[in-house]
Design a protein around this nucleic acid. Structure first.
Lengths: 228, 228
DNA sequence: TATCGACATGACCATTTGGTCAACTCCGTT
DNA sequence: AACGGAGTTGACCAAATGGTCATGTCGATA
């Protein structure tokens, strides 16, 4: 294994991957307490002892998953400035967040389950990094409102609106499938929802939509960013 | 006890209430599997045996809580018709749903946890009653769009938008508190969020806002409805 | 061939799980 | 005073929980 860290993953990396995927699913379904190592092991197709051998403990596994999800989230974030175009920024945010939801629904649900139980493992992150990120964004939004580029809405509520509206399609997938009578949310649904959200939210905030003619430079930038 | 079913609750009713409240909290935090009868009993201040004596089993308790939450939801629902005013209806929906979130955050979280695990106990409801309710609403929205009373947005996505944006303030309370650095969401926050959502969503759908001068007939109707 | 470290896993452990049960108190009726 | 049903609860059970450990297998190096 020391001799090869080449394209083909070593045994360790391969098994850890399998375990992480399985665990993300089980934790997302049942939360931290409700998930059992046995269930994760079965989902991974490995004996329980083997799972513990790789991940150390249930707690470490859970933390590793949360960290992976937060790093995906961080990789999605842009810095923005007052000089940027409000329409482009808002639309970019909506599209990025929606893409995150689409690509990592399990991770999104894992995050939701963690927050539902009071975010015991994410207190620090929420009160630190994320809070500052939101405040920075909020300041810019307020500046835009002052300049008359958008309605003077509460910028924090606006961020939460985008967050919730996109997150919903992962967390409440079961409800959406039940109601729309589909068996899965496909590319076309995600596209349709994204367009809808861009329309309603931008218009609702009095932001003129960014020029939308085919996939723009902006959109490609987002795509390449999200390809972790 | 047979002789008195007067104002003062009997022992049974009183204890069942205590247990339901405690259980709603624990189930909302940890989901069905993650909640233990022991934890519920401690939260209720009763011995485990006593809890089981009243509710029969963990499963029955969980189902009872879901049913209570769905009945609260049903009690909130209006029938609407094409002749109603789109602004009034949309605003009424947002306000009602927000009030439900505010009054029953535990119940909202319980519902979220249930849906997160794939809604095993609510399949029937989602595919039946709720689906029909959404479809009926959607038809009316489409009719309004045809008449030019609102933008031709996908009515189902619109319903989900309202659902998610309001639900968020219960389910992600921990995140919101962490980010806004508050310790609780109070009446003023809920009011502020509600006004924000009404503004953005109505404007975003191209619906002219209903005449808003103080608490209207409409608003009082909603209030009295929600007083279960 | 012997050795070593990564990988694999069944046996096992203390604790907790949901649930049962028998014994008990308490109080209104006879 | 005797009875009976609602309420109360500790003792108990089999099963599942997270985690440890000893015993392996296997392939690369010496």
């Amino acid at each position: 294994m020391t001799s090869m860290n080449s394209p083909e993953l070593g045994t360790r990396a391969r098994n850890e991957n399998v375990i992480l995927e399985a665990a993300e699913h089980v934790f997302a379904c049942h939360g931290y307490r409700g998930a059992s190592v046995q269930a994760i092991a079965e989902a991974a197709g490995l004996p329980k002892s083997n799972v513990l051998y790789y991940v150390g403990s249930k707690r470490k596994l859970y933390v590793a998953l949360l960290e992976r999800m937060m790093s995906r989230w961080n990789a999605m974030l842009d810095d923005i400035s007052e000089d940027d175009d409000p329409g482009e920024v808002l639309e970019g945010f909506i599209r990025s967040k929606m893409r995150l939801t689409q690509r990592h629904p399990q991770g999104s649900r894992l995050f939701a389950a963690e927050v539902l139980q009071g975010a015991p493992f994410l207190q620090e992150y929420l009160h630190g990094e994320l809070r500052e990120w939101v405040r920075a964004r909020a300041r810019v939004f307020e500046h835009w409102a002052d300049k008359g580029l958008m309605d003077p809405v509460d910028p924090v509520w606006l961020i939460f609106l985008i967050w919730s509206a996109t997150q919903h399609y992962a967390d409440f997938e079961a409800q959406i499938l039940g109601i729309t009578d589909k068996t899965a949310l496909g590319e076309s649904e995600y596209r349709s929802v994204t367009e809808f959200l861009c329309h309603v939210i931008l218009k609702g905030c009095g932001v003129r939509s960014a020029a939308r003619v085919g996939p723009s430079r902006d959109r490609q930038a987002i795509q390449s960013k999200e390809t972790i």
